[in-house]
Design a protein around this nucleic acid. Structure first.
Lengths: 223, 223, 223, 223
DNA sequence: CATGAATGAGCGTTCATTCAT
DNA sequence: GATGAATGAACGCTCATTCAT
């Protein structure tokens, strides 16, 4: 065993460790950022607060993220990735497609309930002012994950068409519509949940169930 | 005829005129604000620019609006009121309810096409960061108009249920769902229209038509 | 006399007053800036300190000057303008040209003695890093005044050539050389006055006198 | 032969080698710094860039230099030493003193042409802001080299006085003046070379020649 | 009512320097 | 000796809002 071999080895170990620590640190920052952004909103949150919240100096934050916006979108990316993961579990289920679509709605709702913080972030991070200050890689990544989510929905619908459960609609269009309905419903609920519940007298879950039901029904062939 | 009578009279006239002028001025500011907000977005627009754009001093703006956010939400209110007006035209149409729902979708889409500026405003102004800095009256007013729009949809669906065209669903829930689908679709299109068109290969109008169709279909009784 | 006439009049008065106050305020800022810049140097001075030093808020400073650099160069411009003024007094003197050149040296030295603060500023403000952040107008103005100073020297030398006191040299080149000698001498003295006086055993005034004398002598025709 | 003897010996060898390596490393840093400082200027250059540019870690730089300013002044010292070396070649020339003075001007100009990078550094590093952050030893060293340069000029002039070519002036003062003229001319040319050439219509070399000529002429006895 | 100069807290960001490894 | 992650004070600058005129 030569010296250089030793050094390479130790270098690899070091590099590995460094990378691991870097990732851990990034995670820690994102965790703190999530808390701050949710408590204060994007506009009112400050990088100072995020730094304080994870016990780091402000300058350190900028070693890991280029800007406040980049933190925000990274957070969205993480949230969306989690959602994607949850959604992809659908592939392992053996059910008729109409049940699967309903299941997707349930997955989305459960995810929303457990990760409410992410939602406001997901909605605002598509704002041009935010996107303008984010690197292309990050932007592309976030678009990619968004597409992947829609793909899951689209696949389920496609399968439904193939098995004759659904009419011959464009699966992408139908997926977009279902996705839009769910997003729109949650968003409108986020805007004014008290008012919604008061006026409508229905909670979000029931409305989403109803909405999924209507769309599933609407996708079926009139007999 | 007493002096005070005269004064009262003149006071009334004056007060009326003052109110009228106040309203005109507010309109002028909103017109300028719309231009500036649309060109620059909410975050990058400055009150200075709005003031310049309508030939007033910055301080004067604050005589008519409490804050930048209040201007923004007022603008949304105006947009939403216009939409409400358009939607209420549905009442004068004599068609079966399923056609009416489709018509509502068309009205919405046409309004969107002619008033794209308002939409971005409508979407952002529902963000908590913005709403937090707006007076209750204005907030209530905007919620009121929102409700009125939804009411129109709800009425149409209700009538559809009564005439046996639609299943016995909760009309408010169904209205919310339709509304959410349309809003969500437009919003996702606004976020990344190029990507959407590329990936999905369908333009907004077709998707909205398809979406309305699916929901209308879904509202109907399985036979 | 019409109403509009009155308004025009009052507008003029207002505008005049505003302009006058604006100028006064600018002067006040420059006065404070001079003190701060001299005490701390350009690099270590902060706009905050300048603001404190003249009892204004930091933001106010930026209403009058675009940047720290612009303040600095404005200060230089003022200093150079004062010097120009002093130098132009030479025109009213009736003396032979060789005496006038010596007189110019004296004027420069006296100005330096009374306005030492300006000199460091004049020297550093020609640094590219500083100039890069200054508006073209200001830069042009400062170049213009610099040229005007040199013009005075050049005129005196030209006259000396015409009256046969000096050889037929290029007056601009000679002026540049005289100017460079004086500037270079003062600058080297500024760098390390103690060392200079110790090592050389001569004070600045004597050296400048000697320098002017040598150059005047050198401009004369060998006989 | 004792063990301690061995150790001393090896210690000496080690120490020598260490010193040699230390010097080499310092040189490498200065080489990289020169490139960075010239490309970006003192203010905009960062220690990070210097470190990257010579393949060292930022912290390592601080093992060799106390501060960014110390690097800068070390660089100036190196430049000035080169100039000194060039100037001292004058001693081996057999020419009348007036020719020698002209020769010194030529040497200076040629050095400037080949080492423009150093000049900006030399000029800025004489600024109090920079000098304030530099150790006494380094400052003294730089003053020493500066003095040595001036000594060469002074010697030449002294010899000219002794041989009757020049008048009985103070040789140090005359040297300072010549030096100042050359420095001042180059500096003013560096500041705004385009403007200079346009306005004056003469290039630097001609002006420097003329300047040296005037001063040489001025040092001579009127006959 | 209208003005616009002044405010000043707060912003995102930088980078020379330190220090644990 | 070498590293480079972490620091954190300080930076220049912005702009919604106020208030004396």
């Amino acid at each position: 065993m030569t010296n250089s071999h030793n050094m390479n080895k130790s270098h690899n170990i070091k590099a590995e460790r460094r990378d691991r620590e870097r990732l851990t640190r990034k995670e820690a920052i994102l965790k703190a950022a999530r808390k701050v952004f949710f408590a204060k909103g994007f506009m009112n949150a400050t990088v100072d607060e995020i730094a304080d919240s994870c016990g780091l100096a402000k300058g350190t934050i900028y070693l890991y993220f280029k800007s406040k916006e980049e933190i925000y979108v990274s957070l969205m990316l993480k949230g969306l990735s989690l959602l994607k993961q949850e959604m992809e579990k659908i592939h392992s289920l053996r059910m008729p497609s109409d049940r699967l679509v309903e299941k997707l709605g349930e997955i989305y709702f459960n995810f929303y309930r457990k990760n409410k913080e992410y939602f406001r972030i997901i909605f605002l991070s598509s704002h041009p002012d935010v996107r303008a200050r984010v690197s292309h890689e990050l932007l592309d990544a976030s678009i990619g994950v968004g597409k992947a989510c829609l793909q899951v929905v689209s696949d389920v619908i496609k399968r439904g068409i193939e098995t004759g459960i659904f009419r011959k609609v464009d699966p992408w269009a139908a997926a977009t519509i279902l996705w839009a309905m769910i997003n729109g419903t949650i968003m409108s609920h986020e805007q004014d949940p008290i008012c919604r519940d008061e006026v409508i007298g229905l909670e979000l879950e029931k409305i989403l169930k109803e909405g999924t039901d209507i769309i599933v029904n609407g996708l079926k062939e009139r007999s």
